[in-house]
């Protein structure tokens, strides 16, 4: 899968789920309703940068904390195509993959990315380019690539149920 977009950069490490999407708004279950609260505790002005195809560039242990799926739901609703990070907290990573939002680890590309940079990611080959500079990312395991290609766990489950008749 090839993804392209312009970089929105969050430099801090250990950015947690609570600043990404505060608990007070967990009683919303529709992604469109979640949108206005993404990044609320971190920097609400970040939302203004989410225009068009976005590659969200993040630091280490991004998404640490809660299992709230509201974070990637809201990111997808805003048009985030991929999260490119130094490393991810486990549940956040799972949630992204399950929702069909690629979460790619590539610390060198993260270090090179400035806000607004054009980033291109080939998730199958593990190739990342920031502007014209090429970087290598660890390719995702085939199971995850397969799931991402079909849009996530929901579609994967649909196919499995269809096969079972």
């Amino acid at each position: 899968m090839i993804l392209e977009g312009s970089a929105v950069v969050i430099r801090e490490d250990n950015v947690d789920t609570d600043v990404l999407y505060p608990g007070a708004y967990l009683n919303l279950a529709d992604p469109e309703q979640m949108k206005p609260y993404l990044f609320e505790g971190l920097d609400p002005t970040l939302r203004d940068q989410l225009r068009g195809e976005t590659i969200l560039v993040v630091g280490e242990n991004f998404g640490t904390g809660s299992s709230r799926e509201h974070v990637p739901h809201a990111m997808l609703a805003w048009g985030v195509r991929c999260v490119l990070g130094k490393s991810f907290a486990r549940i956040f990573f799972r949630n992204c993959i399950n929702l069909g939002l690629p979460a790619i680890v590539c610390p060198d590309a993260v270090a090179a990315a400035e806000p607004g940079a054009v980033i291109r990611i080939d998730t199958d080959a593990g190739a990342v380019t920031v502007g014209a500079a090429p970087f290598r990312a660890a390719p995702l395991p085939p199971f995850m690539r397969d799931m991402l290609a079909s849009g996530g766990l929901v579609d994967w489950a649909r196919r499995r149920l269809a096969q079972a008749g």
Binding site: S67, R68, E69, I91, R94, N95, L153, V154, A157
Partner: peptide
């Protein structure tokens, strides 16, 4: 294992 809602949906089904 702490999981998000989509993971849980698959667990409920499979």
């Amino acid at each position: 294992s702490g999981l998000g809602s989509t993971d849980i949906a698959a667990c409920l089904v499979f």
